[in-house]
């Protein structure tokens, strides 16, 4: 499990997560993403799930927390490259509306 932070241009940072997202790993991912938000103060956080091999509802909590964090700073969150099984979990919370910035 790791998260790679990259500059996406126009005030966007891309957080590419790899490996498994569960309650055990979510706390480390949360810390790394929040540090990047604090350091770079982006307008938009794009979370890339292309490297994620498993996710349970802890991933939904991770996205909800970052959404709240970015909203407080006047920013946005978008999700991209979600495999079907991750979208299925996100759909339960209505988080699919964040897919590709919708």
């Amino acid at each position: 499990m790791a998260v790679y932070i990259a500059d996406g241009g126009e005030g966007t940072i891309v957080a590419k997560i790899t490996g498994e997202i569960d309650h055990h790993t979510a706390r480390w991912l949360r810390m790394d993403i929040d540090t990047a938000i604090q350091d770079r103060n982006p307008k938009k956080l794009l979370i890339d799930f292309s490297g994620v091999s498993f996710m349970d509802s802890s991933g939904v909590g991770l996205v909800m927390g970052r959404y709240k964090n970015m909203k407080e700073r006047g920013g946005k969150v978008a999700l991209t490259n979600m495999p079907d099984y991750i979208e299925k979990v996100m759909n339960l919370a209505g988080m699919d509306r964040l897919l590709n910035g919708r």
Binding site: G61, G65, K88, V89, L92, A93
Partner: peptide
Amino acid sequence: DEERSGLGFSVMESF
């Protein structure tokens, strides 16, 4: 406050 989504049982039911 611990970023639990409250979806645990919903996921179990759905899956």
